[in-house]
């Protein structure tokens, strides 16, 4: 991995179209400005993790998998306000 030291206000260029500005350096975080072509997605890494996790979660079906999760749950979580009813 290429490592570079930059001061506040300095810029890094990636190729011809991507520009990264070190906008502000705080005590424990930096604020970074990114200029990139609109079609190029720019994401915080954790958002990518959540996207992938949501895609995986959407594949669980209400059949055997849920039943097996239920069997393992030994929780006394109190139920909350909203309920649904299955119509026959």
């Amino acid at each position: 991995m290429l490592m570079m030291s930059r001061r506040e206000g300095e810029v890094i260029l990636i190729g011809e179209q991507i520009e990264i500005v070190i906008a502000h350096i705080g005590r424990s975080r930096v604020k970074v400005g990114i200029r990139a072509p609109r079609e190029m997605p720019v994401l915080a890494h954790e958002v990518k993790l959540v996207k992938d996790e949501n895609l995986a979660a959407a594949k669980i079906s209400a059949g055997a998998e849920i039943t097996s999760i239920l069997k393992k749950i030994n929780s006394n979580a109190s139920s909350f306000c909203v309920t649904g009813r299955k119509e026959n």
Partner: peptide, 12 residues
């Protein structure tokens, strides 16, 4: 798909 047709409270 999972539960068939359901009815729900609008607050849900």
């Amino acid at each position: 798909i999972n539960f068939g047709t359901i009815s729900y409270h609008p607050d849900a």
